[in-house]
């Protein structure tokens, strides 16, 4: 019973974070900002759901069942790489940024991979 309660709490936390990630993807104004919501919120959301699954199956059956850790590990390893490749591609095709973005003039410098000039 207490196990079910704990897994339910983790499930609901995970679901809420997944929803937050998708809402961010839905409503944020430019591509670079939209990139933030899925890479972070969705990663934590899936992590929480997998933790719920681990807790549930470990207590339901004999012995521990931590297979789901592998999916968590994989997603935590690949999420930053995906984010990096997407932002690199976005810089390459010169996607527009929001008008009030800080250091907007540096986009071309970042795109060509130049170093920041020393003061």
């Amino acid at each position: 019973m207490i196990v079910e309660l704990i897994s339910s709490i983790f499930l609901i936390i995970g679901g809420v974070f997944l929803l937050v990630g998708s809402v961010g993807l839905f409503r944020l104004p430019d591509f670079y900002m939209r990139l933030h919501a899925p890479t972070k919120a969705s990663t934590l959301g899936i992590g929480a759901i997998l933790v719920a699954s681990i807790i549930f199956f470990s207590f339901k059956e004999e012995g521990i069942n931590i297979q789901e850790m592998l999916i968590t590990l994989f997603i935590f390893l690949t999420a930053p790489i995906t984010a990096h490749m997407l932002s690199k591609a976005a810089l390459h095709v010169r996607l527009p940024t929001e008008p009030h973005t800080l250091n907007r003039d540096k986009v071309e410098q970042i795109r060509t991979r130049q170093a920041e000039p020393k003061d």
Partner: peptide, 23 residues
């Protein structure tokens, strides 16, 4: 690129749905 990132998020949501089905 917006479509790609939407698809990527859909993948993650699909994983969550499958885990939920398992539970």
């Amino acid at each position: 690129l917006d479509r790609i990132i939407a698809l990527d998020t859909m993948y993650i949501n699909a994983i969550a749905l499958i885990i939920l089905l398992g539970i």
